[in-house]
Design a protein around this nucleic acid. Structure first.
Length: 978
RNA sequence: GCUGGCGUAGCAAAGUUUGGCCAAAUGCGACGGACUCAAGAUCCGUUCUCGCAGGAGUUCCCAGGUUCAAAUCCUGGCGCCAGCACCA
């Protein structure tokens, strides 16, 4: 069966292509819908996880196409950056998985050497992506297909950056970058593409405080907690070796050798002589800011490779210092311990219970933590580290300073102020350091180097940011969580490096071609370029004609286009751009929330007027496996099925339905083959159910129908309602709700219609006509398949059913709801009733109850009634109810008055008893069938006394009849009317 | 660290913004039944506990609180997950 599905799907894909479904035409005046998905980087082969977002885009595109809009749905390839370089590297070393993948996609042995070239590998991968998209039924505009390493795209990027620079959106300032002394710039990230280890390292900035030696030189102590200088009791120096002179800004400092190298890279300055530690040890130093004198002491605590090679000792707040002091010999130990000065308080109420546990007993915080955790000594590194981290964190989060000059200040604030003061006034310097060792692939230790003239995109610029905020207010962002989050992301969005010097694919920076434009920066404004690319693909525009002047005119309407392109063509390109822009929707995975979408918005608002800026963003979550992100780089031996495998097992439609319905788009789906199979099966069921309904149809226009029976009227109304809800869900890009209506609710309605005896063929054909079109956006192949034997033509181009496709009969809906209610009542009776049932008697409420209920509702609506007493008072005055006064209290007990007070306004008037009786009579066959009852009788309350030995009939309310079940063996009790 | 998300019956997942018709939709699974030579599909029933009259009890991570009324609001706690840090 599966092979058959696959070949049919391919046939329909070919058909769509044949009729040019994807090719968008600019038709000024005609509504259009432009959308893109964040184009993929070329890092490896696609698997079913990636396809979720792409098929969502296609579903949305198909919906809009069926609504009659001109849909522009292009796609491209983001080849920039490192991924293709890495992939080519895998080819070069003949990585088995990579080679297997390549062979699978048709590479031959003789192609492999060529694929060692990143650009070639990237183009190869790009072709596989397009094939996969096609196999999932995406209808893309191929004429806009572009890769970011194509020369025309690079012309576009050059223009974009020149333009941004002229608009003042690029700024130059110093930057600290990871740098391998042998291999050059590297990127520090967990994928460790450049690295041997240390991918999770972050750059932390130490403040190195100068402690003055008697001879005027300074000992540099690097710290992350400069505010604790007020509690320093001594300075630790290495147990052996030397310190080294480093001169900068007129001062001479002593630091470790590696510390000096860092400072030379990051700050500048000059080397000087070296000094043995032993030659210094007898001297006292003067602490910065406080002026306190203190001793130098040797300690194994000092790692010359970290920081500056000396550290200040703050025993009150640093567990390691506290322990180190305890291990000193007397009398130094007691002396220093007694000087350990507590600098801050930790307000009890702000601490978490676990923190309160940590800080108890006597002594300064560090001593408390050391005791609580049972730190044995300096060699007990594990516990010591935990103590350090927890003290550090608690004090940072909750600490309030008590030191003179900083009283009442938060530790966070004090830290900033002290650091600033130290840098400005006493010659402190900043040292940047990785939080863990970072080692390059080449084996060299990666360092941090200052880049003095790095180019940034000035995303932190307040004015630019405000422009983005202002535009964002008018945009549609899905899901709502992201809409709310985006402004907060903008709050902290900062300037972003725009170029880099490294070995990766991308466009040279036009201001200085030694730099290559950073991959995220070259993928922000690209949806605009798709329009131009169509002309390049068609051979109408040449690469060299794509000058800055040309783009200025096409995108911004500025200047005359530079004269290289004929004015007719120039105008045509401009017209197409103005037709297809603004972009209506940009779709991307959740990983783009903070990386791609904000720059995408920034660059648009910088380059285009507001009316041409994007209108929508859609974020989708992932297909995951074992709670780990599954992405191209993670795929290892069948973590997820390959695309081919999944397609042949489930079919494209099966997968598409699974993507849409298994979870909301804003939630990850953990890949689960059995449930994917079930949805695939459900898709096939839909095909089997809808196909017979379409026989003989040759037009999408529904015939006008004479619907006289309730069941027909109800079915018509219910279908119309479902259609409306499906359409609204698609409108809101709520694919899961749409899928639920289309694949669960509608087949349920059809089944129920038949169970109720519905058989109006024209109406059923109408249902089929609606349903097959509703099926098309999510499962397009099977929709075509279903319609193929009718005379309807392609479903993909059929009009999407509007809100008024079928007549709605409110009273039929209301009646159906009443029957539902009765059905529920009967069911709950039968549930509690264990013996066999011969007959169900339905007692319709007397006419006076109808009157009474009307009066009751009026009273509540009018506010004259609110409790039992007032209700009685009101009802007593009614002429018609006079004769039933004694019955009123029992009747009122049937109602929940409190609820009526809330809901009275929503309730319609009750049905007249005769009408109600007719309705129940009509439902008799259904109820008999439904509950397997031999007899169902409908009786009026007032003349059923003899048929109601237990007095159940008194429970009857308008619209809610009383019920009585009769046992078969009950003899003598049945002199009833029937 | 910064920024988000999540915790609902066997599983998945609505409901939470706007408290009440919520024992809590829907789907799946499971069990029982009808149909069938049989399977699938379909249909019916059950799926927190109790109940031979339409009901009662105990539930929506935990503990408090607000309220006539809490899955929903507030406070605190526990647990899980994700994104980001020049990575596309």
């Amino acid at each position: 069966m599966t092979g058959e599905i696959e070949s049919r799907e391919r046939a329909w894909q070919a058909r769509w292509k044949e009729v040019g479904l994807g090719k968008a035409r600019a038709q000024p005046g005609h509504p259009k819908f432009s959308l893109v998905f964040a184009y993929p980087g070329t890092s490896g082969f696609m698997h079913v996880g990636h396809m979720r977002g792409y098929t969502f885009a296609d579903m949305i595109a198909r919906f809009h196409r069926m609504k009659g809009e001109e849909v522009f749905f292009p796609a491209g390839i983001h080849a920039s950056g490192l991924p293709a370089v890495i992939f080519a590297g895998k080819v070069a070393r003949r990585d088995p998985d990579t080679i297997e993948g390549l062979k699978h996609w048709g590479a031959r042995d003789e192609d492999l050497p060529g694929l060692e070239d990143p650009a070639t590998a990237s183009r190869f991968l790009a072709r596989t992506y397009w094939k996969v998209w096609e196999r999932f039924g995406l209808i893309l505009d191929e004429s806009a297909n572009v890769s970011t390493i194509d020369s025309d795209y690079q012309q576009f990027i050059r223009w974009q950056f020149l333009r941004l620079e002229r608009l003042g959106r690029l700024v130059q300032k110093p930057y600290f970058a990871a740098f391998c002394p042998r291999s050059g710039p590297v990127s520090v990230d967990p994928s460790e593409t450049d690295l041997e280890r240390g991918g999770n390292a972050e750059i932390v900035a130490y403040t190195a405080l100068p402690f003055r030696l008697p001879d005027g030189r300074f000992l540099l102590c690097a710290t992350l907690r400069p505010e604790t200088v007020y509690g320093a009791t001594n300075v630790w120096v290495p147990t052996e070796g030397s310190l080294f002179e480093w001169s900068h800004d007129g001062r001479t400092y002593l630091v470790s050798e590696t510390g000096r190298e860092k400072l030379l890279e990051q700050v500048g300055g000059e080397r000087g002589a070296d000094v043995a530690v032993d030659a210094l040890i007898t001297q006292e130093v003067e602490a910065p800011l406080t002026g306190e004198k203190m001793r130098l002491l040797k300690s194994p605590l000092v790692d010359p490779h970290v920081g500056s090679g000396a550290v200040m000792s703050v025993p009150a707040h640093a567990p390691a210092d506290w322990v180190a002091v305890q291990e000193l010999e007397e009398p130094t130990r007691s002396l220093l311990a007694s000087h350990a000065k507590v600098l801050l308080t930790l307000p009890e109420e702000s601490l978490a219970p676990s923190e309160r546990e940590l800080f108890r007993g006597d002594g300064p915080p560090a001593a408390q933590a050391v005791r609580s955790l049972g730190v044995k000594g300096l060699s007990d590194t594990e516990r010591l580290q935990e103590a350090t981290e927890r003290v550090y964190r608690a004090e940072h989060a909750h600490g309030v300073m008590t030191v003179l000059g900083h009283e009442g200040e938060s530790v966070q604030r004090a830290r900033e102020r002290v650091a600033e003061a130290a840098l400005a006034r006493v010659g402190a310097v900043e040292i940047r350091e990785f939080s863990e060792p970072v080692v390059c692939r080449c084996g060299e230790t990666v360092i941090i180097r200052k880049v003095p003239d790095q180019w940034f995109l000035a995303y932190g610029n307040g004015g630019w940011k405000d422009q983005v905020r202002a535009h964002l207010r008018g945009m549609s962002v899905y899901p709502a969580e992201y809409r709310d989050e985006l402004p907060r992301i903008l709050d902290w969005f900062e300037d972003r490096p725009a170029v880099r010097r490294g070995k990766w694919l991308g466009t040279p920076f036009p201001k200085d071609p030694r730099w290559i434009i950073e991959p995220i920066a070259d993928s922000t404004f690209y949806p605009a370029y798709y329009v131009v690319r169509r002309f390049v693909s068609a051979g109408k525009l040449k690469v060299e004609e794509l000058t800055p002047e040309f783009f200025d005119y096409v995108f911004r309407g500025e200047g005359d286009g530079g004269g290289h392109v004929g004015s007719d063509l120039l105008e045509e390109v401009r017209r197409e751009f103005l037709y297809f822009y603004p972009l209506d929707l940009n779709l991307g995975g959740k990983e783009h929330k903070r990386v791609h979408f904000p720059p995408f918005l920034y660059n648009h608002v910088a380059l285009l007027p507001p009316e041409l800026c994007p209108r929508g963003i859609f974020v989708n979550w992932w297909i995951t496996r074992d709670q780990a992100k599954v992405s191209k780089k993670d795929i290892k031996g069948g973590a997820l099925p390959t695309v081919d495998r999944a397609l042949s097992d489930l079919g494209a439609d099966g997968l598409r339905l699974y993507y849409a319905i298994a979870s909301t788009s804003s939630q990850d789906i953990e890949w689960d083959l059995p449930s994917a199979e079930r949805y695939a099966e459900r898709a096939q069921e839909a095909l089997r159910s809808v196909r017979p309904l379409l026989e003989g149809l040759s037009s999408w226009t529904l015939p006008s129908l004479e619907l006289s029976t309730h069941v027909d009227r109800w079915f018509s109304s219910a279908l119309a309602g479902a259609t409306r809800r499906a359409r609204e869900a698609f409108e809101e890009n709520d694919l899961r709700s749409a899928a639920e209506v289309v694949y669960v609710e509608i087949p349920g309605l059809i089944r129920r219609y038949r169970a109720k005896g519905g058989k109006e063929a024209t109406l059923l054909r109408g249902a089929g006509s609606l349903w097959v079109r509703l099926l098309s956006p999510i499962t397009p192949h099977l929709a075509e398949e279903a319609a193929s034997s009718s005379g309807l033509g392609l479903v993909a181009t059929a009009p999407f059913p509007g809100p008024d496709v079928l007549p709605i009969f409110p009273e039929a809906m209301a009646r159906e709801a009443m029957v539902d209610l009765l059905e529920d009542d009967v069911q709950s009776l039968l549930k509690a009733w264990k013996s066999p049932v011969a007959e169900l008697r339905v007692f319709v409420a007397s006419g006076w109850k109808t009157e009474a209920e009307r009066a009751l509702l009026d009273a509540f609506r009018g506010g004259t009634a609110h409790d039992l007493g007032s209700v009685m008072k009101v009802l007593r005055t009614h002429e018609t109810l006079k004769s039933h006064l004694p019955d009123l209290p029992a009747w009122l007990k049937l109602y929940d008055l409190r609820e009526l007070a809330v809901a009275s306004s929503k309730r319609g008037p009750p049905l007249a008893p005769a009408e109600e009786q007719a309705l129940w009579n009509e439902s008799v066959p259904y109820l008999r069938e439904r509950f397997g009852l031999a007899t169902v009788s409908v009786l009026k309350e007032e003349d059923a006394a003899s048929a109601d030995p237990k007095g159940r009939r008194l429970r009857a309310r308008p619209g809610r009849p009383a019920l009585f079940l009769v046992e078969p063996a009950t003899k003598g009790l049945l002199p009833g009317p029937r």
